[in-house]
């Protein structure tokens, strides 16, 4: 699979740009967190496209960003569940 480039993204409409990035991110996240992959991908897609491209080129940066997202997601889920007694 050829790497996703900024020019490939620029040629697509904004909605499709996120789709393209998500399709690249999802399998990488799935390998780390199979049960949370869809939601983590959704969270990471809130990041700027240019930064997402950098993350795709840098596995270490992506790894730490995924761990960050997992921590935020878990904290969110805990606060959701404690809110309703």
């Amino acid at each position: 699979q050829e790497p996703l480039t900024a020019s490939m993204l620029a040629a697509a409409p904004p909605q499709e740009q996120k789709q393209m990035l998500g399709e690249r991110l999802y399998p990488l996240i799935l390998a780390m967190h199979p049960s949370l992959a869809g939601k983590i991908t959704g969270m990471l897609l809130e990041i700027d496209n240019s930064e997402l491209l950098l993350l795709l080129e840098s596995p270490e940066s992506l790894h730490s960003k995924i761990e960050e997202a997992v921590a935020v997601l878990q904290a969110h889920q805990i606060s959701e569940s404690t809110h309703k007694s």
């Binding site: 789709q19 998500g22 399709e23 999802y26 869809g38 939601k39 991908t41 959704g42």
Partner: peptide, 25 residues
């Protein structure tokens, strides 16, 4: 209130990404 129950939006491979509200043309 349960305003943030649906956060975060879930990405599903092969399906159009609908995490953001569509911008009306």
């Amino acid at each position: 209130g349960s305003s943030s129950v649906n956060w975060p939006p879930e990405f599903r491979p092969g399906e159009p990404w609908k995490g953001y509200p569509n911008i009306d043309p």
